[in-house]
Design a protein around this nucleic acid. Structure first.
Lengths: 139, 139
DNA sequence: CATTAACCTTCCATCCTCGGGAAGGTCAAG
DNA sequence: CTTGACCTTCCCGAGGATGGAAGGTTAATG
């Protein structure tokens, strides 16, 4: 199979597949003409990678998971650990975004959104606790 | 004020402030010794930027918001639009992450996490709809 | 046989938002 | 005079690809 074939079959862009080869995630053979020659096993790996990436696993996580995938004597605990850490990162990111979301949504609610310049959104962004340089004390 | 001062006062790293200058978000004066000389107005801008960035606005959004902030004849509708589009992007991102989260959480639940190699997580990643090349039909 | 179109190759640059670190200039205190 | 804390510019790297240029290969046409 040439790269175009595995691209269609795996759903990954050819560019991405070349990139995955460059960073050592897949290692296709080469034909006489220099074209990459993918085996079924390569296609399988690429499919695995596409699915893992779509679940948000980092490339390094993918590398680990792929190694575990191919290790018949793996412990499922090792896989679960990788996934659990990933879940923790997802949850942290969600919390962060939800907090942003709430703040932004409140500001939007408070803004009239008309032709007048008065705007609580800009008001919020421009105000707040700016520290001041220590000056002559009024104390 | 030197960069270290505004860094402390704005809460932004000096590196970030230099970067903001490089991309034209702030434009401090220069002292005779070549040091950046920040005015109160620069500090104010940096504070504005820090707050907007912490709410997840992109640099380009920040550029727009900063321009509106300094435009006395702005319409609050313009600000609200930027914020509303941003909110939409946050919500989309949250949805995406929540979907990932649920999938990953289910897989984790299904995994024994022991010494045995059997693992539904790897099972999920490695299976699924791989398309096949059209071959000799058995039909 | 010549051409064309669809492949494939490598290499280099770009996106975004900085952060790290090198090499070197400046300034105030002791 | 030295020390240490500043400051400067410059280049490299992250993650995870993506875009494009310049050129080789192959299969199907005319």
């Amino acid at each position: 199979m040439n790269i175009g074939d595995v691209a269609r079959l795996s759903g990954l862009p050819a560019k991405t597949i070349r990139y995955y080869e460059a960073i050592g995630l897949v290692d296709p053979l080469r034909s006489n003409n220099g074209y990459r020659a993918f085996r079924e096993s390569d296609l399988h790996k690429l499919h695995f990678l596409g699915r893992a990436r779509s679940l948000g696993f980092s490339i390094e996580d993918c590398r680990t998971l792929l190694a575990l995938y191919q290790d018949r004597s793996r412990a499922s605990a090792d896989v679960k650990l990788v996934a659990t850490e990933h879940l923790g990162r997802i949850d942290a990111k969600i919390s962060e975004l939800v907090e942003m979301r709430n703040t932004v949504a409140h500001l939007i609610d408070a803004c009239a959104g008309d032709q007048r310049p008065d705007c609580p959104i800009l008001g919020d962004l421009g105000s707040g606790p700016i520290k001041r340089l220590a000056g002559p004390s009024t104390h």
